[in-house]
Design a protein around this nucleic acid. Sequence first.
RNA 1: GCGCCCGUAGCUCAGCUGGAUAGAGCGCUGCCCUCCGAAGGCAGAGGUCAGGGGUUCGAAUCCCUUCGGGCGCGCCA
Length: 553
Amino acid sequence: MLPDDALAAFAGAVADLVAARYPDAPAVTVAFEAPRRPEFGDFATNVAFSLAKVARRSPNDVAANLVSDLREHAPNVAALFTAIDAVAGFINVRLAPVVWQTQIATILREGTNFGRRASNGTRISLEFGSANPTGPLVVVQGRTLSIGGTLANALRYCGYDVFVEWIINDAGSQMDTLGRSLYARYLQHFDPSHPFPEEGYPGEYLLPIAQRIVARDGERWRDADESVWLPYFATFGRDTLVAEQQETAKRFGVAYDLWQSERELHESGKVLADIERLRELGHTYESENALFFRASEFGDDKDRVIIRSDGRPTYYGADIAYHYEKLKRANRVIDILGPDHHGYINRLKGLAEALGYPGALDVLIAQQITLMRGTEQVSMSKRAGNIITLDDILDEVGVDAARFFFVMLATDSPLTFDLKLAVEASSENPVYYVQYGHARIASVLRNADAADVEAARGGDALPRLQEAAELALARRLGELPRVVQGVADHLAPHRLAKYARDVASDFHQFYTECKILVDDAAQRRARLALCLATKSVLAQVLDLIGVSAPETM
RNA sequence: GCGCCCGUAGCUCAGCUGGAUAGAGCGCUGCCCUCCGAAGGCAGAGGUCAGGGGUUCGAAUCCCUUCGGGCGCGCCA
């Protein structure tokens, strides 16, 4: 019997006993939590507190009565536990070793599918990373990619049908700015004294792109009219930069189902059609020749212009269309945005409500990142043009460290990323701590006899798992499905990083206290089985975070 | 001014939608390899959970308020 089944049996029995002893009490749900302190057992429930008032007894009396009732009337349930104690109003329980042994057997049997749920039919649209196609990805995208990629993995593990998308903001004036900046670089190839536009994008990343145009077209555009070269340079720049962004996202281990062009939304007529839908619903009005969305009726600060007085839709107008498209094809929509988007939360949620999908949209804001190299702050000034790109960061610290560090903290907590620490192979570095755990297990397995490892995988020796450190590790491994479900429910991927460290910590403790390759074959195989299960769970967690699980380091 | 986030150990941060004596890493002080990877483990010191009210059996967590910090408030994208 698995831990969850044992707890369910316990909960069912207690619910019956409550009904018998306190017939006036409303039906109770017996929920369990892991107590903070290990001496309180594996799980605890606080049912007695909610019954205390109806029973007109102290919570501790109620708890004590329920425990004695359980022992008397449901001995078969009580037998699944080595301890059931009423303490300070709580009922603390400790599961019998056999239950944890069953847990390990299950992990060994299910392997990398352990805890993974079948499809639940719920479609989720998840958007993150989206950057302007006017330059390379930078540190902000690193964080949103890491958070979003991990969240997508966790949601899929829980059975959601996740659709991952990126919006390319390739409409509006910034495309002209990109085209002019690129054209200036192009002309500078022939005449280095040619001035660079004031408002242009000064980064050096445009130089190689301009070179490609020179190589391809030569002087063809030098004397061309702006109406001819501008769309060409803007489109060429966009295409090249988007392709580079896609490469970086791929390198970072994040796969997208859709790269949605904003310009395409305009050209296909969807923007105007979807704005029209908002008008039909009565949520717009005209003023000063422009079309406004009554955003203030849906929680926003004020009403917003969606079609300008000259007839062109605003960026927000396009956002309406894009989100309407997403809401139509998914049951739920999640946006992960950068720190300069706090104002979007109410605006977008209000929009979803106005379109008839109240509560279907969640907006996460990934807070600011400070890049450090040791004690020195790394400048990320875009204006100066000396930007640190995400690729620079990956070159310096590697994908594993970047993915782990970016997802390690709660999304709404500001993050300080120390590049020096991220490459340090030291105890200060949590990535190494977790990966070391995996490599250490791999090393033990290499030292073990191959036939022994195979026998261990069969699980016959599991009844020998009795030590506290062994059972504590088994309990931790069994938490995986619940942890991932928590990540999905609370959109909190950082919990996976915490869990990875907890698993590694419990393993290291077990490793220190219990020698694995002992002479006693049954003992040895039981512990090898625990090693195999731990290795499997660690690999699963690291995979969800997008970090590799090395055999050696 | 308004809106959104945040304030927990010297530092960086957790705290599982209200539970027990507040948790971890780093740093500090001491231990632990004749034995599977010491990139590890154990122990100790360190807290007015920013301050003040409220809700209740019970609050770091929920509500109000004050203070402090970050970001956002264009017919830009």
